Amino acid sequence: MTEDKSRSDQSRRIVFTGASGGIGTMTRPLLARLYPGLVLSDRVEPKDLQPGETFVKADLTRPDEVAAAVKGAHSVIHLGGHSVEGGWDQILNANIIGCYNLFEEARKAGVKRVIFASSNHAVGFYPRRCKIGTDVTVRPDSRYGVSKAFGEALGALYADKHGLIVTCLRIGNVGPRPLDARRLSIWISPEDIVQLFRIGLEHPDIRYDILYGVSDNAASWWDNSRARQLGYRPAGKAEDHRAHAEAEQAKIGPDPVGDLFQGGTFTSAEFTNDVKRAGP
């Protein structure tokens, strides 16, 4: 999976946007052991900056600040942006304009690889009864989901037109264990998502790929065979946490719309359609 050792991990400058967010906080300690000297970027400095880590403050809506963050980088793990549903202006600025700025400044800086944190919400209106691959038509469940579909398309453009090596991860839900019944299908452990980061950073056969960010879950709705072709061997299993997830689900109660679709409450929020006319 790894590239030639003459370009060792330590020689790379890896920029990690969204470093102060939830996924960033969970995965940074694991990444730091593999890639010393991470360059962290966010609007707010992480509270636990470690020796060897460098922080570069950057607002994704400001191209000059993004340029400063990616200067001299070999690779970027792009987790930055607004991480849940929001109003249009908020999503537009953080996740669409900000995503464009990241790819464009990365191109101009000569960055070789970008890992884009997409989301299951880019395909959230697929019914839970369906098992889908990465080649399906996007069916976003929210403005947030639309922004992730945009990021995937933008990544394809920069891969084909400019030669960036781009890996889009349709992330389910990252955490120590699944929090409810839906997450039994979409959960991914921090250790497993770091394994996917490594594939995106190192695998020689990637030009542009979409992979699902999901652990080895028996109830998974996603065909992640491409990730496995690239060497992904998830260790986490949501079934190990089923009792906890079901107990938490009992506290939530039913959602007549969200329970039908993979995107859950993102599909039911602001929903005005007939469920029979929603989804493919």
Rank of each mutant, 00 (worst) to 15 (best):
Thr25Met: 05
Gly86Thr: 05
Val56Phe: 00
Arg177Trp: 10
Gly264Asp: 10
Ala269Arg: 15
Arg183Tyr: 08
Asp42Pro: 02
Ser8Lys: 04
Asp240Tyr: 00
Leu154Met: 14
Asp259Pro: 10
Pro176His: 10
Phe261Ser: 05
Ser185Met: 03
Phe197Trp: 15
Leu38His: 08
Val70Tyr: 03
Tyr158Ser: 01
Arg207Leu: 06
Arg170Met: 11
Ile96Arg: 13
Arg62Glu: 13
Val111Ala: 03
Pro204Met: 13
Ile23Val: 15
Arg129Ala: 01
Gly213Asp: 05
Lys71Leu: 02
Val39His: 01
Asp216Gln: 12
Leu169Ser: 03
Ile77Met: 11
Ala109Pro: 10
Val166Thr: 00
Leu102Asp: 15
Tyr126Ile: 04
Thr272Gly: 04
Ala58Glu: 09
Lys237Asp: 03
Ala149Leu: 14
Cys99Asp: 12
Leu34Trp: 00
Lys47Ser: 07
Val15Cys: 09
Ser41Phe: 06
Ile91Asp: 03
Asp205Ile: 08
Asn224Lys: 05
Ala278Tyr: 13
Ser118Glu: 04
Leu31Glu: 09
Lys251Leu: 14
Glu202Pro: 08
Arg143Phe: 09
Ile115Ala: 07
Leu196Glu: 06
Ser119Lys: 09
Pro234Lys: 02
Arg233Gln: 11
Leu154Gln: 06
Tyr126Ala: 06
Arg129Lys: 07
Glu191Thr: 04
Asp192Arg: 13
Asp216His: 03
Val39Met: 13
Gln249Pro: 04
Thr137Gly: 11
